[in-house]
Deep mutational scan, measured.
Amino acid sequence: QVNIAPGSLDKALNQYAAHSGFTLSVDASLTRGKQSNGLHGDYDVESGLQQLLDGSGLQVKPLGNNSWTLEP
């Protein structure tokens, strides 16, 4: 069960990665100043990332080996 409060997208993504045990490689300029609506409930990694990114204009991309990145 994930419980991440709304706020900074950077912070939300870092909390989610730490909670879910995956690696997220992101260029900080992509997420700077963006906000997230947070995340509450049970999600697989990709669904949770998509939910956190909702409205940010960013997309999640798998890199393999439980690693992910973001792209515009």
Rank of each mutant, 00 (worst) to 15 (best):
T31A: 03
E46D: 06
H40A: 11
Q1A: 12
N37I: 09
P72Q: 09
I4D: 01
K11Y: 14
N66R: 05
P62K: 14
Y43I: 05
N65T: 08
L39V: 06
L70M: 05
V60S: 10
W68D: 00
P6M: 07
S36L: 04
T23D: 08
S20W: 15
D54A: 15
K34E: 06
S29R: 12
V60I: 12
S20H: 15
Y43A: 03
P72W: 09
G7H: 04
Q59T: 13
Q50K: 14
H40T: 11
G33L: 05
S25K: 12
L63D: 07
D44V: 05
V2A: 07
L13R: 02
P62R: 15
V2H: 06
S29F: 10
P62V: 08
L63I: 10
G64T: 05
K61A: 06
K11C: 14
Q1S: 13
P6Y: 05
E71W: 07
G7R: 02
S56Y: 05
G7D: 06
N37K: 14
G33C: 14
T23H: 11
Q59V: 14
D44W: 04
R32N: 11
K61V: 13
V26Q: 03
L24T: 03
Y16F: 15
S25C: 15
Q51W: 08
A5G: 10
A18W: 09
W68H: 01
K11D: 15
T31P: 01
R32M: 12
L58W: 04
A12T: 07
S47R: 12
G38I: 02
G55H: 05
D42M: 14
D42K: 13
L53W: 01
A12E: 03
S36D: 01
V2M: 08
Q15S: 09
L13G: 01
G7A: 07
H19D: 09
N66F: 07
S20M: 15
L52D: 00
A18M: 12
V2T: 06
A28I: 10
S29W: 12
L52T: 01
G33A: 05
N65H: 09
G33Q: 04
Y16T: 00
G55D: 03
K11W: 15
G7E: 02
G57K: 05
L58E: 01
V2Q: 05
V60K: 04
S20R: 14
L63W: 06
L70S: 00
Q1K: 13
V26R: 03
G7F: 00
S67F: 10
L9N: 00
F22H: 01
G7Y: 02
L58M: 04
L63E: 06
S8R: 10
D10L: 14
L58T: 00
S20I: 14
K11R: 13
T23E: 09
I4H: 02
A28P: 14
A18T: 09
K61N: 05
T31Y: 05
A12K: 02
E46S: 08
V45A: 06
S56V: 04
G21N: 09
S8T: 10
Q51Y: 09
L58H: 00
L52C: 04
L58K: 00
L63T: 11
N65R: 08
W68A: 00
L63M: 11
T31R: 00
D44H: 06
V2G: 04
K11S: 13
L58C: 05
I4S: 00
G64C: 07
L9I: 02
A12Q: 05
K61E: 01
N65E: 09
S67K: 11
Y16L: 06
Q59C: 14
L30Y: 07
N66W: 06
T69V: 12
Q51A: 14
R32V: 12
V45Y: 06
Q59W: 10
S29D: 12
Y16M: 01
T23C: 13
P72S: 09
Q15H: 08
Q59N: 10
Q35N: 11
L58Y: 03
D27G: 05
